[in-house]
């Protein structure tokens, strides 16, 4: 990306990401991931799949799943639709990069700043999620991802490591409220 003169703020409106540790749980704001949504065009499914796999190096995940490989990650978000993630520093213009790869076989929309991402780690993270979401968190395996209600907001929960490492994607504008809810739940089980 060319240099420009605007400074970025994290979703929690800070210059640097906020990392909160409560008991054994760490809640880390992570603005260093670029996100784009990728949707397949009707009638172009085969071409779409082939082009997406060529970009990512792996097959797009099935409903309820997420895949990670190299720089790229993919999360199923709806029928025929995925979120792709990649490091922000190298992929700030992720939408253009993905669009170049899938051409008119897919629709691509920049989503990087539509979401706040919190990475939650800790051996008792499951106890915290029990207080936040109806997801059966104890049965969630690494590579599973789903969207459900947390703090009245539709949030994606991605299991990175069963029982101890999760990412939560929530509406960026509500980052402070979501963070507050996560911290309170962590305190309740600390």
């Amino acid at each position: 990306m060319p240099e420009h003169r605007l400074k970025a703020l994290t979703p929690l409106a800070q210059a640097r990401p906020v990392i909160t540790t409560v008991g054994r749980i760490t809640i880390a704001e992570n603005p260093d991931v670029a996100l784009a949504s990728l949707a397949q065009r009707r009638g172009r499914e085969a071409d779409f799949t082939q082009r997406a796999e060529a970009l990512l190096g792996f097959a797009l995940p099935a409903p309820g799943h997420a895949v990670q490989g190299g720089d790229w990650g993919a999360i199923w978000t709806g029928p025929g639709q995925w979120f792709l993630e990649a490091p922000f520093a190298s992929h700030e213009d992720i939408a253009a990069m993905v669009k170049n790869a899938v051409t008119d076989a897919g629709s691509v929309t920049e989503q990087t700043d539509a979401w706040v991402r919190f990475d939650v780690t800790g051996r008792n993270a499951t106890e915290m999620f029990e207080r936040l979401s109806a997801i059966d968190i104890h049965r969630m395996q690494a590579g599973q991802a789903t969207r459900s209600l947390i703090e009245h907001l539709g949030c994606y929960v991605i299991c990175r490591e069963a029982g101890s490492r999760y990412s939560v994607l929530g509406m960026r504008s509500a980052a402070a409220s979501l963070h507050h809810a996560l911290v309170q739940a962590a305190e309740a089980v600390a």
Binding site: P63, G64, P79, A134, T146, S148, L149
Partner: peptide, 9 residues
């Protein structure tokens, strides 16, 4: 596609 979900969603 996603199995049992609470109607709150």
């Amino acid at each position: 596609l996603l199995g049992p979900r609470d109607s709150q969603e």
